[in-house]
Design a protein around this nucleic acid. Structure first.
Lengths: 143, 143
DNA sequence: TATTTTTTGAGAATCATTTTCATTTTTATC
DNA sequence: GATAAAAATGAAAATGATTCTCAAAAAATA
């Protein structure tokens, strides 16, 4: 991670700061869907003086550099994760919030067809499906 | 539209107000992706005293009733449209903001497979692809 | 190391959206 | 149709996520 950060920063003329190293590392280690607040909380454990503004600034930067991706899984705020080499999508339980990741060759195929049909250059595919997970499905039955 | 509104309101014990009639009608006539502000502007042309809070309240209500759908096409705010009988998705140009709608049997297929595989009850599929439209694709070439 | 450039922290500002509450409109009842 | 009860509205304040400002600190460059 640190090497990657250095490389990307050099490339775009950015500084490599302790805050950036820490933040990217935390996102990497979280291996999940982290929101700005939670990232801020975790960062503060190691750098008490870090500011929420710095968190947002760098999330934006990492996104521009293509290191992370931003998703709207819930309603009002974003979640971030290391941009995995293999594109994947999200299946969210509307009841308990559980998030499953998936990918599908059918989606890739759809993308290719659409690209031809509409003559767009498509560089991003964001798919979110919502429903009830097996557990919550059960709970809802009685009602 | 008015009949539908009445039916849905009765069903859930809501009142049928002038504001609701106007708002739903405007969304219907817009035939596109309208945001709260633009809807508010248009509504004020016909009911000067209408409040932005009423716009938001009723967008929320229409959504709960399943009459409209909410999409995050841009960055910071939502767009709304009449929920079309056939589910469709969005292809957005990151340069000029142009929005194309599409749907694809491949997506439906993917949904079915996922439903089986993960044992979720899936009731919502939101797919957004981003890229450059034919025009903006051209403009970017020289750089 | 000195100088320039970039980033940071802290708090204020912004923007979309939601809430509060007194007043008005709609609905249900007679 | 009049009236009481219930729901919705307008206006303004509140909220929550995110962005901006600016002086001070850190990093890159010479």
């Amino acid at each position: 991670m640190k090497m990657i950060l250095k490389k990307y920063c050099k490339m775009s003329g950015r500084s490599v700061t302790n805050q950036r190293k820490l933040l990217l590392d935390l996102i990497y280690r979280a291996k999940g869907h982290l929101d700005a607040d939670e990232l801020f909380r975790r960062a503060k454990e190691q750098q008490q003086r870090i500011s929420l503004a710095t968190v947002y600034r760098n999330l934006k930067l990492f996104k521009e550099m293509g290191l992370i991706s931003e998703n709207r899984l819930g309603e009002n705020h974003s979640h971030y994760e290391i941009r995995s080499p293999v594109e994947h999508h999200h299946l969210v339980c509307r009841s308990c919030g559980r998030v499953e990741e998936f990918d599908s060759p059918l989606i890739d195929e759809a993308r290719l067809r659409l690209q031809q049909q509409k003559e767009f250059d498509i560089f991003s595919v964001q798919l979110k499906m919502e429903g009830y997970c097996p557990k919550c499905k059960q709970k809802r039955k009685p009602s």
